[in-house]
Design a protein around this nucleic acid. Structure first.
Lengths: 334, 334
DNA sequence: CTGAAAGCGCTTACAG
DNA sequence: CTGAAAGCGCTTACAG
């Protein structure tokens, strides 16, 4: 059995109150006493029981972090950001993945039981009432890459601006007219926002977005290939394909090649995110960099502040800039 | 404030003992009473406090999962495996990333404080005494992709066998003689094992491994490029390069191309792992598939059994098969 | 089938 | 500067 605070108190010849004091560095304690306590702690290699501590203080020093698919490298970058922030303040990060079944919120529940002092939800399909229920229990919530209105602090990337810059590159610089879009899911607003930016840019040039050129994927591996095949069944082929993320863009390239066509000579392809994969695909992907890591840092920072001060003074929405990254898949040369 | 078991008891007109009983489904409780309690639970949307529960039962229903670099897609696959197992048994998964600083074991500590019922450590730089310290506290530990001897249950892939098959392909089928090796770190035994297999295969053909052809990387992005440049500074160039993982192999390909050379015509490259990236690189990577997901499932299964039954009867070591995946980077044609 | 009470291991006013 | 005691919210023998 692990030793308890009583064992330490016994060994040091003091009360458990005193042990608790030196452990937590609160109140004055006589230096000699303090030394004796630490000595006992060392000898017994005592570790304070987190459950007892959590029960007594109502503070867990843990940040709950929920992501939709734990095996996506994209989300792992955000984790890094949040973790860095948390560690600085002596907080630990509990990462949970949300099962894909819509409507199931296993980990939301888990965290509600006071496992964590605050929650950061990334791209999770939550509704405003659900979040408010958590807030009612006094657990601050920060949303990343999701926007459900209300006064829930939200960290997003400038999807519209990034997509606009990308569309402009396609239309203005390369002169493409028939541009297709491979959409992601609508769980978060990202995909729809990017499509809107593309459409707006087309309209500004007195061009219309052809509905037949809009097909749906799900962001995940393989879905870009299927979507691209659908596109290749249309006549005429699009001149360029804008995929809602890099994974689908990469798969689209494979699908185009399967048909014996070339990228970008026959059909140009661009993505979104700028994940590592984008630099390894051939041709390298023109895409939009999302400040993934930075979004994590910002979310962590807000969560930590809310733990101390409550919602007071927190911005309801932080939009981080995105950046066009031009490589070769759009038709530009190295 | 969240409601407590007392609130529920009040509302249902019973004692907290009874509430606890129906909540946990233990002992007989009169159906009518049970119904009243559930009703109260619903009305108050009561959630049992995990800390109080954990304190009282000494069981958390959580599996601790420690990985070295949370942003590596490779490890995310293992998480999926463990999680699937855990969920089936009503267990939740707490994922923690271990900071890179050697010797620091932040999360090891965290979990020791009885946050979790068992721990799964993946590719973590632990020593036998450290693990035994945890075991002494009654927390079962399962190691994945790491082997520190002793009787700690361990799940590994057949590194030696896989590397041997790969080396055989290179030497026997392609007839390469000058084969270089880009090593990973030595935190886990994997890299060294793969190198040994290569060397043994060479020896069987009365060939020697040239020490100048062994350079060190760290598995991570970019390190394969640096390592490959070192290799290209040697004369004569190797005919084939065996990188200890796909990431380094992919970067090696880029480095070779930078020199105006072709893969595999001038220099062949192979990797290890078979991560998604391997299919997107050009030429596609010949590599060895690791049963990543399966290793996670196996580790989760063992951990869960140990929670119930202790170490008794658990195998000390499970080796899962690997599989040669032939694509194009070795010189084979599509 | 159900309740009163002790116990899980800590923290924190309250006294001194 | 330090100790005794109540309290955090649950579970679980022990009685009945």
């Amino acid at each position: 059995m692990a030793s308890t605070i009583f064992d330490v108190a016994n060994r040091a010849g003091v009360s458990i109150s005193t042990v608790s004091r030196v452990l937590n560095g609160k109140d004055r304690v006589h230096p000699d006493t303090r030394a004796r306590v630490w000595e006992a702690v060392r000898e017994l290699s005592y570790q304070t029981n987190a459950f007892a501590h959590g029960l007594a203080t109502q503070r867990t020093h843990m940040l709950g972090f929920v992501i939709p698919q734990i095996n996506d490298p994209f989300f792992m970058e955000i984790v890094r950001g949040v973790e860095e922030q948390a560690a600085e303040s002596g907080y630990s990060l509990l990462v949970a993945s949300q099962p894909q079944q819509p409507g199931e919120h296993r980990y939301l529940q888990l965290f509600q039981r006071s496992y964590v002092d605050a929650m950061v939800l990334v791209s999770i399909d939550v509704s405003l009432p659900e979040v408010e229920q958590i807030l009612d229990r006094g657990v601050p919530v920060v949303l990343v890459q999701q926007d459900i209105g209300g006064k829930v602090p939200t960290v997003v990337a400038d999807n519209y601006g990034g997509a606009r810059a990308l569309a402009e590159h396609l239309v203005d610089l390369h002169g493409y007219r028939r541009i297709a879009y491979i959409a992601g899911t609508d769980i978060t607003p990202d995909s729809a926002l990017r499509l809107r930016a593309l459409e707006a840019m087309l309209n500004e040039h007195d061009l219309a977005l052809d509905a037949r050129y809009v097909v749906r994927g799900n962001y995940l591996r393989g879905s870009g290939r299927t979507a691209m095949r659908e596109l290749l069944a249309r006549q005429p082929w699009p001149e360029a394909v804008f995929a809602a993320n890099d994974q689908m863009a990469s798969d689209a390239i494979l699908a185009i090649r399967e048909q014996g066509l070339r990228v970008p000579e026959d059909i140009a392809v661009v993505g979104f995110d700028d994940v590592p994969l984008a630099s390894y695909v051939v041709p390298t992907l023109t895409t939009v960099r999302q400040p993934i890591y930075e979004m994590g840092v910002e979310a962590g920072r807000i969560a930590l502040r809310m733990i101390d001060a409550g919602l007071a003074g927190e911005p309801h929405r932080v939009t981080l800039p995105t950046k066009l990254v031009v490589r070769n898949s759009c038709g530009c040369v190295a």
